[in-house]
């Protein structure tokens, strides 16, 4: 329908999301283990649903750690010019956003422990009321983009 935005995310995003998926999965597994121990010692409920939960968690973790990051990386795109920011993402449901520079209220970068380990950062763009983000960019690049957007948002003048 429209031509795609040009830029991709940093490929290292895959590893960051992979580890995040693994950590979440590990956390869920610990929870399930704790619960099954409690169940054995005190509650004595049937165990089949714990196995279902286990299988479910493992499948979810594999999806969240291996398949979804790949697809997300493939479908996340963005482009930036002097007038606006164009973001496209979504694996099944494609979401395309257009944010004029003049409407940008502020920009910030954010990085949690996993992203930082891989030298990545998330860029967040705020308008008066809505928020957009470009996740997992190269940290240097994210800072440069942030500066660029802040600068462009400042100079662009509306003539409507």
């Amino acid at each position: 329908m429209l031509e795609q935005p040009q830029e991709n995310l940093d490929p290292r995003a895959f590893y960051a999301w992979f580890w995040r998926g693994i950590f979440i999965g590990a956390f869920l597994l610990v929870l399930i283990t704790c619960f099954s121990i409690i169940n054995r010692l005190w509650l004595g409920w049937a165990e089949w649903w714990i196995w279902i939960l286990l299988v479910f968690t493992i499948v979810l973790t594999l999806l969240e750690a291996l398949i979804i990051p790949k697809l997300r990386l493939k479908f996340w795109r963005y482009e930036l010019n002097e007038e606006e920011i164009d973001i496209q993402h979504g694996i099944l449901i494609i979401k395309r956003s257009l944010i004029p520079m003049i409407r940008v209220q502020h920009v910030d970068t954010e990085h949690g422990p996993i992203l930082r380990r891989f030298g990545l950062a998330t860029l967040r763009i705020y308008t008066a009321g809505t928020t957009h983000r470009i996740p997992a960019l190269d940290a240097q690049n994210a800072h440069a983009l942030r500066r660029q957007i802040a600068y462009l948002a400042q100079v662009s003048d509306e003539d409507v």
Partner: peptide, 26 residues
Amino acid sequence: IQDLRLTINPLQRRKRLATLQVGVAS
């Protein structure tokens, strides 16, 4: 208008339809 967003879900794609969202400060 603060931002404009188009979304297309798989069923809409088959029918060449899309959803428009327009953000306004309030």
